[in-house]
């Protein structure tokens, strides 16, 4: 992508400088994969490898959860972020998994991510935060914005053309469609989805909100959930995961992307987002670090419709 050529050069230069000067101990970015349509995560600690960094419209991976690998290490790491990734970093900062001293956030302009066939990803069409919500530095002229906004920076025109954020108002369409079904249909639909799950935990591993040091699904304690992928245990996993990220999900859509069984995980997350907004007021997770997530606070006059 020619708009991003200078951004790529700047990324490599910056990463090399940061590593050579010892400002950071490592840099999270992307590299070109084995296919032209594949841009995969890359972590470098060596300035000589900075030239492997690459960023284009296939760099869909959210790298923020990778910062957890170094949460016990005081050294600083640099991370390149798109708008959605930056919310993941805010998630980790707000959950106190990393400190601001441990991370150097470098914001990038997002051209809108595309799949192998070249069509815009649904999550990008529904994107409300294409610009980083926080960054220590930016490349490509992107603006840091904590408000839902239109894409900025060198790829703003390209992003507008492919329709980034054009369907932001339809984010809840899938939820609304399911809500219109009868209880029996919903039960059958979700039973089918849960039966597909192979419990690989890829959704958990990629999620910046799933940052518990000891996950309930890894615990040695007996009795919580069976390791077998039965419908009952899969439903337990799916609902527990959803409740654990409720009000904290940053809407990056990575869980659904990495799911090998194509389970509509984001539909559940969106359903929770929609209910939280309806019950407890508007809230966008991972945008403002100072606003406590809705399930971590309360108001004495909260609704009590189920009592």
């Amino acid at each position: 992508m020619k708009e991003l050529h200078n951004v790529n050069v700047a990324m490599r230069t910056l990463a090399r400088e940061l590593l050579e000067s010892g400002t950071v101990a490592g840099v999270y970015g992307w590299k070109k994969g084995s296919r032209p349509t594949l841009t995969s995560p890359l972590y470098i600690q060596d300035a000589a490898k900075a030239d492997r960094l690459a960023y284009d419209q296939y760099a869909v991976s959210n790298l923020s959860a990778l910062l957890l690998d170094h949460r016990n290490n005081d050294k600083k790491r640099a991370i390149f972020v798109k708008g959605c990734d930056s919310r993941g970093v805010v998630r980790l900062l707000q959950d106190q998994q990393i400190t601001p001293e441990q991370v150097l956030v470098i914001g990038l302009p997002c051209p809108g991510m595309v799949d192998e066939a070249g069509s815009l990803l649904t999550k990008c069409a529904e994107c409300r935060f294409p610009n980083p919500v926080m960054a220590d530095q930016v490349l490509g002229g992107v603006e840091v914005s904590k408000q839902p906004s239109a894409p900025t920076g060198v790829t703003a025109e390209a992003a507008r053309k492919v329709g980034v954020g054009s369907r932001a108002g339809e984010r809840m369409a899938q939820v609304a469609q399911l809500e219109g079904k009868t209880a029996a249909e919903k039960e059958a639909y979700w039973a089918e989805q849960h039966d597909k799950c192979i419990r690989c935990y890829a959704c958990r591993n990629v999620c910046p909100a799933c940052n518990c040091r000891d996950c309930i699904f890894d615990t040695e304690k007996k009795g919580w959930v069976s390791k077998a992928a039965t419908s009952s245990a899969n439903a337990f996993f799916a609902i527990t995961r959803a409740m654990h990220v409720a009000g904290r999900c940053v809407d990056c859509g990575e869980c659904e992307r990495v799911c090998p069984m194509d389970i509509p995980i984001m539909t559940v997350n969106r359903k929770l987002q929609q209910d939280i907004e309806a019950l407890f007021g508007p809230y966008d997770a991972g945008v403002d670090e100072t606003v406590v997530p809705p399930l971590g606070r309360y108001q004495t006059d909260d609704p009590e419709e189920f009592l």
Binding site: E187, A235, I239, M243
Partner: peptide
Amino acid sequence: TGNYFTRRRFLLMQRLLTFMGVD
């Protein structure tokens, strides 16, 4: 304040379970 958190949590969970087909 424990029950205020309970109220938020289960208000949300009841809606989620309803979404999954539980009465």
